[in-house]
Structure formats: structure tokens, C-alpha cells
């Protein structure tokens, strides 16, 4: 029996050597990973001492804030187009980082009729393009009062979306912006549920949550968010709350500002002028 199995034995030995090589390599890789991890964290600490997140931008030197002057908004939706283009947001009427609502009060009615550019009646039939988004010219002849309200993420100081994220894929930065790490998000949509303002959506193509970043890639380069840049009437105000001369600081100083759903205890960083109690 042993004689017969000799070649098999040789094969056995070869296979064993092969297995040792494979497992050994894996184990070494594993250990190497630990080493890399250790050095990696050191590198991260070192860069933390300098400017973060980029070489030219230090997030401890800013505290961003956003203002919305609803009395100026003309409902042109340039902001929506700009946002979708700037941030690669799906063009369909179900995914928005920012959108515009309209509150219409008809004579004799106590509650407003609310619509947005996403309402079917306001989109040209079957266009599916953001270029066709526009507010319907309501033929309600007895409009008593009407106004537009731009909406976006409130970048709350106490964000419910961050609270519910199970993995730490969403967080608030030192300069007051709530971001999503889309390479870490598991796509559970708990944050979408938790946001009282409907500001978050789910990017089905990427399988991750999506939200307004105040164009973090722009504001860290000294630019304004795309929606602010695009607004032709100055209804959107952006700036550094720590700088008393910034647009936003002056806006808050000069106006009597409101926030949305203050009873939620979220402490929004988007300040509104020209809204009433019906705006939620």
C-alpha cells in the first residue's frame, strides 16, 4: 500500500508546500497590513498638525452659515440646475440637494396650497430634464398672496441624520458642514428617514445616501456654493459666521431670521427671512 501511494505522497508534499506558501503569504500580507495601518495613522496625525482638510484650507478657521431671503426668490430654479450640474445629482424630479417650494394663499382659504418644481403639473410632459422644471403659471385668479421658499440641507448643529448613521459615514465638520463619506456609506437610508426636512435622498446608482454639502469642494477654495453663485436675485446668502463683515453675518444682524422646525431641536445653520409659520 505504501509503495503504491508513493507518487501520491510526493504530490501531497508538493501540495503542502504550495499551501504553506499561499497561507504564509496571506499571513505576511495580514501582518503587513498592521504595519501599514500603524504608519498610516502616524502620517494622519502629522498632517493633522498642519492644515486640514487641504493644504490651502484650514477648517478650524471658518464657521459657515447660509441665509435664504424668501422675499427675493423669483422661483427661476437656476439654483436647482446649478446644484444638479455641479454635484452630479440625478436630473429626475425625485432627487434634490436643493429645491424650491411655493406657498400660494387663495382668497378665502386659510391654508396655503404648496407645490414645488418637482410636482408633475410643473414639469413639461415627459421631458425628464431639469431644463423643463418650472413653476406652473397657476390660473387661480384669486391668489391673495404667494411666495417661494428655497430649501436645502440645514447643516444642523445637532443633526439627526448623523445621530442615526450606524457606521460614521456622515458627520459634521469642524467648519459646520454635514458631509457624507460616500465611500464608507452602507446605504441603509436611516439618515434619509431621520432628516425632518426631507433634505437627504438616496443615490440608487451609487447605492449611497446623498445630500447637500454647501459645495464643500467650492467653499474650501474660496468660492461660493453653486446655488449661491447661480442665484440672479441674491436670495441665497453664504459666508463665514465668524467674520462679522461677511454677507451671512450682516444678513443675520440686519434681519429677523428664522429657522425651520425649531421644535425638532436640530439647531439649523440655514437662516430664513420672509417665511411664515406655514413653512416647514
Amino acid at each position: 500500500m505504501t509503495k503504491k501511494t508513493r507518487p501520491v505522497d510526493r504530490r501531497h508534499v508538493l501540495r503542502l508546500i504550495g499551501a504553506i506558501a499561499v497561507y504564509g503569504a496571506t499571513a505576511l500580507q495580514f501582518l503587513g497590513g498592521f504595519a501599514k495601518r500603524a504608519s498610516g495613522s502616524v502620517a494622519a496625525k502629522a498632517s493633522a498638525a498642519g492644515s486640514f482638510p487641504t493644504a490651502s484650507y484650514d477648517w478650524t478657521k471658518h464657521r459657515w452659515g447660509f441665509g435664504v431671503d424668501a422675499t427675493r426668490c423669483i422661483g427661476c430654479l437656476s439654483c436647482v440646475t446649478a446644484c444638479k450640474t455641479e454635484n452630479g445629482v440625478s436630473m429626475d424630479p425625485h432627487h434634490f440637494r436643493t429645491w424650491v417650494e411655493r406657498y400660494v394663499y387663495l382668497e378665502g382659504e386659510e391654508r396655503p396650497r404648496v407645490d414645488s418644481q418637482a410636482d408633475a403639473g410643473d414639469i413639461a410632459a415627459s421631458s425628464g430634464s431639469v431644463d423643463a422644471y418650472r413653476f406652473d403659471d397657476r390660473d387661480d385668479r384669486n391668489v391673495e398672496k404667494a411666495f417661494f421658499v428655497p430649501k436645502l440641507c440645514n447643516h444642523c448643529a445637532n443633526p439627526p441624520c448623523v445621530q442615526v448613521c450606524p457606521v460614521g459615514a456622515t458627520f459634521r465638520t469642524a467648519d459646520g458642514v454635514v458631509l457624507i463619506d460616500q465611500d464608507y456609506c452602507i446605504g441603509c437610508r436611516y439618515c434619509v428617514q431621520a432628516c425632518p426636512y426631507g433634505s437627504r435622498s438616496f443615490n440608487e446608482a451609487l447605492g449611497v445616501a446623498d445630500k447637500c454639502t454647501w459645495c464643500y469642494h467650492r467653499i474650501t477654495k474660496g468660492l461660493k456654493p453653486a446655488c449661491v453663485e447661480a442665484c440672479p436675485v441674491g436670495a441665497r446668502i453664504f459666508g463665514d459666521l465668524d467674520d462679522p463683515q461677511s454677507d451671512i453675518s450682516q444678513f443675520i444682524r440686519v434681519n429677523r431670521v428664522n429657522v425651520l422646525k425649531p421644535e425638532m431641536g436640530t439647531h439649523p445653520s440655514v437662516y430664513y427671512v420672509g417665511i411664515n409659520r406655514d413653512v416647514r
Partner: peptide, 26 residues
């Protein structure tokens, strides 16, 4: 099955964000 990235589900175990009810789940 419902997750956008099921392959990242382990993150809830390695970096559980304890303020989330879902983190505790795992």
C-alpha cells in the same frame, strides 16, 4: 438585501456609531 452596499455592512461592527440604533443591531 436592502443595503445599497451589503459588502460594507461589516463597517457597523468595526466602527459602530453607538448613537445609532442600527449600530447596536449588529
Amino acid at each position: 438585501l436592502h443595503l445599497g452596499h451589503p459588502e460594507r455592512a461589516f463597517e457597523a461592527m468595526i466602527t459602530p456609531h453607538w448613537s445609532s440604533a442600527f449600530a447596536a443591531f449588529s
